[in-house]
Every structure is written in structure tokens, then in C-alpha cells.
């Protein structure tokens, strides 16, 4: 609905196929189900570094022109 309203929305989720079924357009595979932008196995500093990387990916997805829904590759 947010994309429908004209705002690009990058969707960070572990279950990317579910995000696709639900109708998201910009999908970024991220984390695990209970913590899509968290990784408790890392030290707090490393976790923030990783999370910032995931957010960067999502921002780049929001800045990418698309014709149809895409699960972004882990670049």
C-alpha cells in the first residue's frame, strides 16, 4: 500500500517468498525470522556494522528503478 501510494518501500525480511506473496516490490533477504535486522551471534559493534550494511542495501533498493517485484540479490 505504501508503494501504491508512490513511496518506495524496501522490505527487509527473512521469509522473502512470503514478502513476495504479500505483494512487496523491493525485497531484501535479511536476518532471521525473530530478528530481521539483528544478529545476536555477533558482538554489539559487529552487529551494528552488519545492520548498517543491511540498511544500506535496503536504501539502495529504494533508489533502484523497477518494473516489477524483485528479491534483491545479496550484493
Amino acid at each position: 500500500m505504501i508503494e501504491k501510494a508512490g513511496i518506495p518501500a524496501a522490505h527487509l525480511a527473512a521469509m522473502t517468498s512470503m514478502a513476495k506473496i504479500a505483494g512487496s516490490n523491493r525485497i531484501i533477504s535479511s536476518g532471521l525470522i525473530p530478528h530481521p535486522v539483528g544478529d545476536p551471534s555477533r558482538s554489539p559493534e559487529e552487529e551494528l556494522k552488519w545492520r548498517t550494511g543491511q540498511v544500506r542495501k535496503a536504501l539502495n533498493a529504494a533508489a533502484t528503478p523497477l518494473d516489477e517485484a524483485l528479491i534483491f540479490p545479496d550484493w
Binding site: I7, P8, A9, A10, L12, A13, P36, V37, A62
Partner: peptide, 18 residues
Amino acid sequence: IAKQLISDGVHAVLVTST
């Protein structure tokens, strides 16, 4: 939510799902 985001001048959204 989209309506509120537009009136607040938001340009991009990050959605997180569990």
C-alpha cells in the same frame, strides 16, 4: 500509514517483517 507518511514528507520507507 501511507497517507500519514505522505503528509509528513517521507521519501522512502524501510519495512521490517518477522
